[in-house]
Design a protein around this nucleic acid. Structure first.
Length: 326
DNA sequence: TGAGCCTCGGCATTGCCTCC
DNA sequence: GGAGGCAATGCCGAGGCTCA
């Protein structure tokens, strides 16, 4: 084996992958028995695949702007109510499937796919498509989830909820504003199962056209990797809103009522206010410091320094699940 | 030795009820 | 109407165990 090939395998081996596994995956034509003979593999007949393989381990998390601004995802699992949201000529109607609405935790799958697609586009890869194939283990590790059986089980339930939840909206993506109905995931299928049990190893999902247009137009924002450490659904939603509206500005002030409506919370305004006060006390929101103005009944988000988000990302240990923020 | 499974307990959200 | 308590439900982490 040439030095170049050895170096290529060393650089591209996945965490925990043995040399043989990495060698077989990355250099299939050099697998056992092929040396000096005609390859036992037939030529690849479909080099131009109609799906995108998500295999970039260090892609930074990215989310689409439309779903950050408007509450497409429920904060609680099992929510079977139909929700409608209207603001500034934008309307959103969320119709749950049999298993209830997809939750903000289920959205991690969207974020994972968007991150992979945008990173691939930035690297100049030409195989990107709205059909994304990925290994479940990579998804679980990237999104800071347990990799035990329950992790795979929850991921399957999330896929079912995403496919079952229907959205009707006129949110504009890539210059298109039309009344459109779509599932949060068009369809999904298990493409590889483990031999011993029925656990899914690799999965393929078809993202909705609406989302695909947003990705192609780069209507996305980078999130802090600490986003996946946020445990409370409401905290995740508040972070999304802060990231979307405050962005790199020094601060963003919003009334509690407006924040409440934008969040999509189904709790009472009183309890929502209490949750925001708790968030202010813990100060655990990545990239932003939050303060609550009792008299004005408003919240102000302050960006934690111009380089805050990037610095936080670089501080994290890559590839290793982080302890969640409670 | 590491990956995965199982169980238990903690915590958060939400809805409902009662009291002031 | 607001405040507080309680229960149902869901998500997640920790710890111990098995297995390849």
């Amino acid at each position: 084996m040439s030095k170049d090939r050895q170096q290529f395998i060393q650089e591209n081996a996945r965490p925990g992958e043995t040399w043989n596994e990495a060698s077989t995956r990355l250099c299939p034509s050099r697998s056992k028995g092929s040396r000096g003979k005609r390859s036992s593999l037939v030529p690849e007949r479909h080099a131009q695949r109609d799906f995108f393989i998500a295999d970039i381990l260090d892609a930074s998390p990215k989310d689409d702007i439309g779903s950050m601004e408007h509450p497409l995802f429920a904060l609680k699992a099992g929510d079977t109510r139909m929700r409608t949201y209207g603001r500034n000529n934008v309307t959103v109607k969320v119709m749950p499937g049999h298993g209830g609405c997809a939750t903000i935790h289920d959205k991690d799958l969207w974020i994972y796919c968007i991150s992979q697609l945008v990173e691939a586009m930035n690297r100049g890869r030409e195989d990107v498509s709205r059909t994304v194939r990925f290994t479940m283990y990579d998804f679980l590790v990237t999104t800071n989830r347990p990799t035990s059986g329950v992790g795979y089980q929850r991921a399957a339930e999330a896929l079912r909820r995403l496919a079952g939840t229907r959205i009707e909206t006129n949110i504009e993506t890539d210059g298109y504003r039309e009344r459109e109905g779509f599932g949060l995931v068009d369809s999904w299928r298990v493409v590889e199962k483990s031999r011993n049990d029925d656990r899914m190893v690799a999965v393929e999902v078809d993202l909705p056209r609406w989302l695909w247009r947003a990705v192609e137009a780069r209507q996305v924002l980078t999130l802090s990797r600490d986003y996946f450490r946020l445990r409370k659904p409401l905290d995740r939603r508040i972070y999304e809103l802060a990231r979307k509206h405050c962005g790199a500005q020094p601060k963003w002030r919003v009334s509690i009522r407006a924040l409440y409506e934008k969040s999509g919370s189904m709790d009472t305004l009183r309890n929502f206010r209490g949750a925001i006060k708790a968030l202010v006390e813990t100060s655990e929101l990545p990239d932003y410091r939050v303060s609550f103005d009792q008299e004005g009944d408003a919240v102000t988000f302050y960006a934690r320094g111009a380089k805050g988000g990037k610095a936080q990302m670089d501080d994290l240990v890559k590839g290793k699940p982080q302890k969640r923020i409670r």
